[in-house]
């Protein structure tokens, strides 16, 4: 298994008590698959994503990604893990406003040992002609494409997407999901998406439903459909 999570627990202090955010989560995902975690706000899906991405640590349990037990890594090693293996796509893009499209993608190539060719990635996301534009000159969908290019250009083993279509309309969202699927097929990148939107689960190989810090249901999708055929709910 590419991702193997066993009995992961996480709690945060809340006044004099502690709130359990993850209550013994176990899950797995094969290499090259797309996984979708569905759940309402407060279900713990973002915390799980942060732990998988090496941004946060669990209190107990085991988290293996690509053969590495990341729960045992210290800060410096976690930075190396994020640098070499993980790509992030955020809901609000998090682009650097005073860098051009090309330069925003360069932010990632600058620290990467073997990045993909920048222009080819920009071409793949359909923004080569806007390489010298600034983020404020782009639409929301285009900005998210830049964010995806920035994540993909490092050629990561795992792409973590936090509500990637949360701030976009349905047509643009479909474009973005198509692009993610294209990345998955072209580069063999394993992708894990967290979302409220159940429609997205139809393009995933595995679907995890979370509520109140626990996985209620996980299923293998035998009939993965192309993002362009998805019906928006």
């Amino acid at each position: 298994m590419f991702i193997q999570v066993a009995e992961l627990r996480k709690s945060y202090p809340s006044g004099n008590t502690r709130t359990d955010v993850l209550k013994g989560i176990s899950m797995s995902l094969e290499q090259g698959e797309i996984g979708v975690i569905l759940g309402p706000s407060g279900s713990g899906k973002s915390t799980l994503l942060h732990i998988l991405g090496g941004l946060d640590g669990g209190d107990s349990g085991e988290v293996r990604v690509d053969g590495v037990d990341i729960s045992r890594l210290h800060d410096q090693q976690l930075a190396g893990y994020r640098r070499e293996r993980i790509g992030y796509v955020f809901q609000f893009y998090n682009l650097i406003p005073n860098l051009t499209v090309g330069e925003n993608v360069e932010v990632a190539t600058y620290i990467s040992k073997s990045p993909l060719a920048l222009d080819r990635v920009l071409e793949a996301v359909g923004l080569l002609d806007k390489k010298n534009r600034f983020p404020t000159e782009l639409s929301g969908g285009e900005q998210q494409r830049v964010a995806i290019a920035r994540a993909v250009v490092k050629n990561p083993r795992l792409l973590l997407c936090d509500e990637p279509t949360g701030a976009l309309d349905s047509a643009t969202s479909r474009d973005i999901l198509e692009l993610l699927q294209h990345v998955n097929r072209t580069y063999g990148t394993t992708i894990l998406i967290i979302t409220h939107n159940t429609a997205i689960s139809r393009m995933a190989h595995r679907v995890f439903k979370m509520k109140d810090g626990a996985i209620l249901e996980q299923a293998v999708n035998e009939t993965v459909i192309s993002a362009e055929r998805m019906e928006w709910e």
Partner: peptide, 13 residues
Amino acid sequence: KGTISMMKVLGYN
């Protein structure tokens, strides 16, 4: 602040 944090997320040491 955001850029620094984002750099950390991307794996900048």
